[in-house]
Design a protein around this nucleic acid. Structure first.
Lengths: 340, 340
DNA sequence: CGTAGGTCTGTGAACGTTCCCAGACTGCGA
DNA sequence: TCGCAGTCTGGGAACGTTCACAGACCTACG
């Protein structure tokens, strides 16, 4: 029999009240840790809860309180990348850790097309979530504007250039990119290029700007290629392109570790040795970095902390606290390994 | 201002009824696509819904119907692996596609420790999900037994050896492993080893058994190493161990693509050339396979279909249909590339 | 001793939906 | 003409919780 027996009726707050010889109200006060409950009552209720195996009915609670106790995590990436990108994964884990502590359910909403975008906007207006965390929003993002309009408590991870009124948590992409490029230059490289990506977002823009700032007058626009996605494929194509444009290239800053991994494959394909012929540095210090051959020098970003902080920002708005409108930038650090 | 303005009251079924000049009951019948609604009423209600921007209140619905409209996806893996493993990712995507079509919310429950296990068991008994899909259950799994006891509609992906009464969807690991090992042998390899993994699960066991069957009398237990996790690290350690045990090894069956990727790094480290010195084959045909250098010959498993089918099994139980107690095994195929 | 203020408890009402029943209307055959 | 089956609609009741309110009790102070 696969259909299973009829499930037993779940215990309600009434059963607990009857068992404890008290009223609904008192039980509710114990459950919600409110004031004005005597020690006797508290003990009795707790014993009764354990005895009848009571678990609070979320639907009834949500209905009465007009809240969903859910937070949406909106990710603007293709589904495939969502699963593949270790940075997003780490952010998700951090967010989830904080939210489950606070008894909130995380709902992941992946936006892959304009159709998704509309569906998610409708979902948000339906009150299915009490707040949202938005990852990697692009400029002109309709979802972000819908969130502002609906007045839903929110936080960005990363900083979309054109949206006001929502706090954001990010990293200093400019400083990180500048620092690692300088470090790469310090190894004596003369012809240094970049495989840029996601220029429609602040992360992509700022990493490029940092690279440019590090090079100063030596900056050569023909040594920069760019592609939309932070992906292995971007690195492979980008490296091929750079090699064809400048066969004498001896250093590459890849805008992410996954791109760097692709670039390494591109160099291997072309018979170049890393780091002797070409030095490569990445960005993220994700799971890719250690798995590369040779191991990748990269910029470490605290992805887990980004997720945690964003979640805390949303929760504090939900508690009605005044949240600083401005953003927070977390510091990055350089991890130097064997690829440069 | 980050706190946002007061949100407007959401339209209810009453508003729709008033707008359409009909009663609650009729509106509800239209929404739930029931019989006995006149065309006039249907049109009027649909217009009213659009006009007032009505979205159904899930909490109220769930409360009344005593269902959560959520399905749990229970994954027995460390959090890190959950994000990294492309097979699990593909299963998740397949599951989610089917469930969201049927208006069910997917809730991922990752079990990383015994504490998690207890928490999830309690969660399940709380009625937060109407059904569960269990991935990669180990033998003697307490959660699986709890599910049977609670009578929650469920389906396994993969087949835990000691649990009856729950349908499962799997692949024929034995046949796949046997076939690719035979193909590897056909390239003329003489000393073929295996890096096995997850021997506490059917997938691990069956892949090892298939390998053994393919070798027949030539099977040499000293050429098999095993580690708990399907991971890159397993492949690296395993390859080092195999090389130290049998320096003349010329073929390796890795129990997963991620293991194969690690093994490739191990061979590179030892200066062996693939496929000239050693031929390597993997299992899964995941995103890793194409990214390896050289590209990996492997067994393709329809991970997306596994997820879809498991979801459908659970949904049909929810509809009260009789589901065959037995399992379904989906066929695998061999994808031959450059690593052997 | 009366009263004020604090603590604690019980109860009715409400959240928005679905389910069920009663009843109105229609068409059709006896 | 009547009854009956089928179609359609309206409204009461209930799901399990939280909140507001009312009232009981205790202590302490004038």
């Amino acid at each position: 029999m696969a259909t299973g027996a009829a499930r037993p009726r779940r215990a309600t707050i009434h059963d607990v009240a009857a068992e404890a010889g008290l009223s609904r109200g008192t039980v509710s006060r114990v459950i919600n840790a409110e004031r004005y409950v005597s020690d006797d009552a508290r003990v009795a209720v707790e014993a009764a809860i354990a005895k009848v195996g009571y678990v609070r009915n979320t639907a009834a609670r949500n209905l009465k309180t007009q809240q969903s106790h859910a937070i949406g995590l909106i990710v603007h990436e293709p589904h495939s990348l969502f699963l593949e990108d270790p940075v997003i994964g780490a952010i998700l884990l951090g967010t989830n850790a904080i939210l489950s502590e606070a008894d909130y359910q995380l709902v992941s909403l992946v936006i892959d097309s304009d159709r998704d975008s509309d569906r998610v906007a409708e979902y948000l207006s339906g009150g299915f979530v009490d707040g949202v965390i938005i990852i990697s929003a692009r400029s002109g993002d309709p979802i972000a504007h819908a969130v502002v309009k609906l007045g839903i408590p929110a936080a960005f991870v990363g900083h979309p250039p054109d949206i006001e009124g929502i706090p954001f948590i990010g990293i200093d992409n400019f400083a990180g990119a500048k620092a690692i490029t300088e470090r790469l230059l310090a190894t004596g490289r003369r012809r240094v290029g970049m495989i840029a990506s996601a220029l429609d977002r602040d992360s992509g823009q700022d990493r490029l700007a940092g690279f440019r700032a590090a090079l100063g007058d030596a900056f050569d626009p023909s040594l920069v290629v760019d592609y939309p996605l932070y992906s292995h494929g971007t690195g492979l194509s980008g490296m091929r392109e750079l090699l064809s444009r400048a066969p004498d290239i001896d250093g590459v800053f890849a805008a992410s570790d996954s791109i760097a991994a692709g670039a390494l494959d591109g160099l291997r394909e072309a018979g170049r040795h890393v780091p002797d012929d070409v030095g490569i540095v990445g960005f993220d210090d994700s799971a890719w970095a250690l798995r590369c051959q040779p191991t990748l020098s990269t910029v470490r970003q605290p992805a887990d902390a980004l997720g945690r902080l964003a979640a805390e920002r949303v929760l504090s708005q939900l508690r009605g606290e005044q949240v600083p409108d401005s953003g927070t930038l977390l510091p990055t650090s350089i991890v130097w390994r064997d690829s440069a």
